[in-house]
Every structure is written in structure tokens, then in C-alpha cells.
Write a protein that binds this DNA or RNA. Sequence first.
DNA 1: CGCGCTGTTGATGAGGGTCAATTTGGGTGG
DNA 2: CCACCCAAATTGACCCTCATCAACAGCGCG
Lengths: 251, 251
Amino acid sequence: MSSPSPLPNPSSLVNSLRTSCSTCSMHQLCLPMGLGENDMDKLDQIIGRRRKVPRDSYLYRMDDVFTNLYAVRVGHFKTCQINAGGEQQITGFQMAGELLGMDAISTDHHHCDAIALEDSEVCEIPFARLEELFGTMPTLLRHFHRMMSQEITREQSAMLLLGNMRAEQRLAAFLVNLASRYVARGYSSTNFQLRMSREDIGSYLGLTIESISRLLSKFKKQGLLGVSNREIELLDITALKAMAAGTEACS
Amino acid sequence: MSSPSPLPNPSSLVNSLRTSCSTCSMHQLCLPMGLGENDMDKLDQIIGRRRKVPRDSYLYRMDDVFTNLYAVRVGHFKTCQINAGGEQQITGFQMAGELLGMDAISTDHHHCDAIALEDSEVCEIPFARLEELFGTMPTLLRHFHRMMSQEITREQSAMLLLGNMRAEQRLAAFLVNLASRYVARGYSSTNFQLRMSREDIGSYLGLTIESISRLLSKFKKQGLLGVSNREIELLDITALKAMAAGTEACS
DNA sequence: CGCGCTGTTGATGAGGGTCAATTTGGGTGG
DNA sequence: CCACCCAAATTGACCCTCATCAACAGCGCG
């Protein structure tokens, strides 16, 4: 693996090794999915920098001018909107390998705030330069379209959840969804830590913090899961899935 | 305008005049927005056919293989999803100049049903051929991205609506939204016909048909609008906007 | 040790769902 | 042209889910 020839600048190599798409554990989920080595290098070259985002700080704010998409490298984010009445709603949680900022393309301004839920790291992708690549990299373009389309689908599911599921179903669906995303990233599907507060979960699910708390207690009592603070252990995923689907026997 | 030279096939010319993007009244809202004549011709050439879709019939169904996007030329559509519990929710209403099917790109299968609310007409856009154009038509690609991004934004608004607005606000927001879309199409912002049933509206807003009916009656009594069957006249748009924003004085 | 933030649990009530009865209007056939 | 039918919409009565308000517990931190 290590080249025998002398290296002009070892430290920059180390840096590039640490941060290139090809060595990133998320490259099979993220934007470079399916790219060959050449194409991945080209993509690497336009990526501005890897930016650290401390917990609770903003990656971008609503109405900020849009210049970059961001790929989450490490950590978790939430995106939230504020309506005219001053109420805030969380529109999504993003984890490693997911893309942030696609809603800003239409107006060149961000439509929501993006906030780190823990100390995190993103890759800055200058959209104008990404567009230049599209002309010669159809594989990249195709996958970008898939990611945008996926975002649309994801939000349609959220609409379904908010529009006609009851509280119980919503929380079950939320937990099952988290589990599946962790599995895709090679983590346990049953044991994970909630990175967001109960309030965030409630806001995302259109419920109050009290409802979330009560439901978690209820699920615990029913033996569906274990909870301790933000530590979650899913004990009966089948039942949770059935509940989310609205097909479980009534309790 | 009419060429003095003999025409090889007059009837086909008439047909193309009737159906080309350049002569379509929606081309400033639809996919060809901002294209020059040359590019618009190229786009025209890949558009499969103009397909009529009678009222209540399916443009596509969930799980159908995805091959085409559709641009609404005439009429209105609804898209709806069915969850595992068998309940159906409407995820959107589409009118002339809007694009259908973008949620299918990610999996090559449609994620929802698309149904005509009245006798309608669409332009069939083979997606594979559209992708071929993207390489050489950056303006087209850019506008396509804007339309996808707009769809994401639109759905985020719907999430906000479903997640933390009360019934009254939801219906007000819905009516104001319809009005603004009709204005953009050169129609009256105050007088229009609802193309969808009360049930459809309820499904979209996460409310029951009874609630919709009651709210319309209430708004009428308050002098905010006139209703007669599906005929709507908005009498106080300012108040409706304030109500949608949650900033109106409590009644 | 006390303060503040986050989360839990209980009591109460309202918004909107559910069920049921009735009206309206469009379409059809005599 | 009228009678009839059926689907869609309206209206009323009742009830359930979940929001609201409130008290309190747990935990980290200065």
C-alpha cells in the first residue's frame, strides 16, 4: 500500500488520506457512491474542506445564501423551520453519509436551520463546482438525483406519519427508522443512543415532550424496549414495526 | 410567422404547434423554463407524447416501474400513498406546469398513485432521455434541480402544516396556497373551483371530511369566503393569510 | 450545596375524531 | 320535465386522544 518513492509532503498526504472520499467509511452511502477511482478523485478535488461543527452550533441558518451542500462525515444534525407564528418544527435528523442543504437549491437561500446535535464534522461541497462535474460524470449526476429523490420520499413518509398516525405509531415508526439507518451504517439495530432531546423528537413527530416521555415509559412497561436517559435498547422490533404499520393487535 | 414554403405534412405541423413546449402556455413555469429556442426544440424532441388522462383514472400506480416523468399540461392530479395499515393519504395536488414522478427516481419505482382529478393531459418525459440531455444542457439541468428542490421545500411546508398547525390554520394555509398557484398561472386568486373532494382535502390536511365541512361553514359565517359546492370565493385573503401564519387575533 | 435544565408523572380539558341523521345536487331513466 | 337514486356534503351529539398545566425527580455543574 505505501509507496516506496519519496513523498513531497508527508503531512499533506496524511491529511488527504484522512479526509478523501475513497478512505471515508461513508462513501458507499454518500455522494460518491458507485464512482470509480478517477471520478472519486475529481470529486475529492472540489470538496472545499472538512469542517468541524461543535454541538449546538449552526451549520447554516435560514435565509443564509446557499453556496454549499454538506455531507455529514461524523455526528448528527437536525434541521428545523420556524413558521410565521414563531413556532419551530424539526423537519429531519441527519446522520453520517447524508446530505444537507438540498432544499436551498430552488431559491439560493437556505429554508431551514441546520444544527449539530453533537460535535460533528461535514464535508463542504461547493454546489457550483459540483454542477461543473455533472457534465462529465453521469454516474455522479445519477446518484445525486437519487439522493434528492430519496429526500422527497423520506419527507412523504414523514407526511404520512404526521397526517394519519396516532402518537404510539409515530414513535414506533421513528425508532424503527433510526434502527434501520444505524444498521445501514454497520451499527447495532437494537442498541443505540438518541442524540436528540425528547423535545426534538416531539417536535419532529408533532407531539409534545410529555407524550414522548409517557410513550417511552409505556413501551418500556410493555417490554418493547429498554430506556435509560438517551440510551435505547429495542427488545421487540417486530412488535414495534407492526405498531408503526398499524397492524398490531390492539393493546 | 407562417412560412411561405410548402409544408411536407401540414397535419403534423398543426399537431406539433399544438403540443410543442414553445407554444405551451406553461413553458415559463414548467421544465423548459429559461431555455433558448434551440434547447427547447431538443427537449421537445424527446418528449414522448401528450397523453390524455380521464378523470379518476391513474396516471401511474405505486410500484409501477419508473420510466417517465410527467408534466401536467391541462387539468389537476392528486398523488396518494397507502401505508401498511391500509390507510391512504394524499401527499399533494398538482396543476398545470408541475412535474409528477420525481419521487420515483431513487428506486426506479413509483412510491405513490397519481390520479387525475378531472379530464387532464400530461407530457410524457422519458427520464433516461432527459438524462442524456443534461450533459449538454446545463440550463435545463439547473432548472430540473430547482424543481426537485422546490418539491422538497413544498413537502417541508406540508410537514410544518401537519405537525403543528391547528385545523383552522391548515385549511386557511391550503386555500391561500391554492390561490397563489392560480395567480402564478394567470387565474383569479379569489375565485376558483376546488377540483378535489372534501375528502381529498381532509386527507391531505390530516383532518376528517367533517372537519373540512365545518371549517368551510365557519369561514363562510365569518365572512372570510364564499362557498357553494366546489366554487370558492376568497373574500378576505389578508385574514386568511394571518390565520395560516398563526398571527391573527383569536376569534 | 443550590441552581438550572431535562425528563417523568399526574390531573384536567379542549380540539377534533367518530358515529349517525339529514340535506343537497348531479345524473339517469321513465 | 319530473321522479328517483346515490354519492357528496352538512350538521349535530358524543367521546377519545393528546395538549396543557403543574409538581416533582434526576443529573450535571459552577
